[in-house]
Simulated assay, not measured.
Amino acid sequence: MTEFSERIGHEFTDGDLLRRALTHSSMATANREDNQRLEFLGDRVLGLVMSEALLAADRDAAEGLLAPRFNALVRKEACAEVARQIELGAVLKLGRSEMLSGGRRKEALLGDAMEAVIAAVYLDGGFEVAKAMILRLWGDRIKNVDSDARDPKTALQEWAQARKFSPPRYVEVGRTGPDHAPEFTIAAELDNGSRQVATARSKRLAEQAAAKVLLARIEAGEI
């Protein structure tokens, strides 16, 4: 735990908070709380910190630009990316079945745990301490977030709706790899016959990747 505390830059006064933040529901018992309540709180702390940071970074940006940037910084994928950066998966307390199914690498599980760690730091050291940790760990992601950082699936759906198309369809066309670390191949399809396939370690990531390539083709005038 000491090495992990060093990686996040916070030494806990109440070590039980950190232990709870790192305990997945698969390890919870009557005497051992899991991290779900902390996850709920951490999501709100992260949201406030990112709202402040984005307002300070661009004092002229309208809400329409700030909202997608905010979503890009606080969504599960961003939290999981930071979690991998600090090797959070290595210290998670998981039940046997979750561990065997590759829980230490799962996007949603890592994202949830990152939010729980944020809450633990907030409860242990206060808002300013938690804020400093978040800004340090998110680093250049804040200033480099795309001006139009909408989720690709949302952007593609808006494009389709503007042309009176049905919402884009996402179809699983393949799955490879072992059960504990599968990769999914998803096809994104539009009413005009346009189609793009992408592969990723979760269905959600594969859908986003396929939508992103379709959007790129639209912007290039190919569709």
Rank of each mutant, 00 (worst) to 15 (best):
M1R: 10
M1H: 10
F4V: 04
F4W: 04
F4I: 01
S5F: 00
R7E: 11
R7V: 03
R7S: 14
G9F: 02
F12I: 09
F12G: 05
F12K: 07
T13G: 14
T13M: 05
R19S: 14
R19F: 12
A21N: 05
T23P: 09
M27V: 00
A28H: 11
N31T: 13
N35A: 10
F40I: 14
G42F: 06
R44H: 10
G47A: 03
L48D: 11
V49W: 08
M50T: 05
A53V: 05
A53M: 07
A53K: 08
A53G: 06
L54S: 09
L55E: 09
L55W: 01
A61F: 03
A61I: 02
E63W: 08
E63S: 13
A67S: 14
N71F: 07
A72G: 12
L73R: 06
V74A: 06
V74Y: 05
R75P: 00
A78N: 05
A80K: 05
A83C: 03
E87G: 00
L88I: 01
A90N: 12
A90S: 13
L94M: 05
G95A: 06
G95E: 04
E98D: 14
M99I: 00
M99C: 02
L100R: 13
L100M: 14
K106F: 04
K106E: 13
E107F: 06
A108C: 07
M114Q: 13
E115A: 13
E115I: 00
V117A: 09
V117F: 04
L123T: 02
G125F: 06
V129G: 02
A130H: 01
K131W: 00
M133V: 11
R136Q: 01
W138I: 04
D140T: 11
R141V: 01
I142W: 01
I142N: 00
N144K: 12
R150L: 07
R150D: 11
D151R: 06
L156G: 11
L156I: 09
L156F: 08
Q157I: 00
E158G: 08
W159M: 09
A162L: 07
F165H: 15
F165A: 03
S166T: 13
R169F: 01
Y170R: 10
V171D: 13
V173I: 15
T176F: 02
P178S: 05
H180R: 12
P182M: 08
E183C: 01
F184P: 03
I186E: 06
I186Q: 01
I186S: 02
N192G: 02
S194M: 09
S194Q: 13
Q196M: 11
Q196D: 07
Q196H: 14
V197P: 00
A198P: 01
A200E: 12
A200N: 11
S202Q: 08
A206L: 12
E207T: 10
Q208I: 07
Q208D: 13
A210W: 05
A210H: 10
K212M: 07
L214H: 04
L215K: 10
A216M: 11
A216C: 06
A216Q: 15
R217K: 15
R217N: 15
I218L: 10
A220V: 03
A220E: 15
E222R: 14
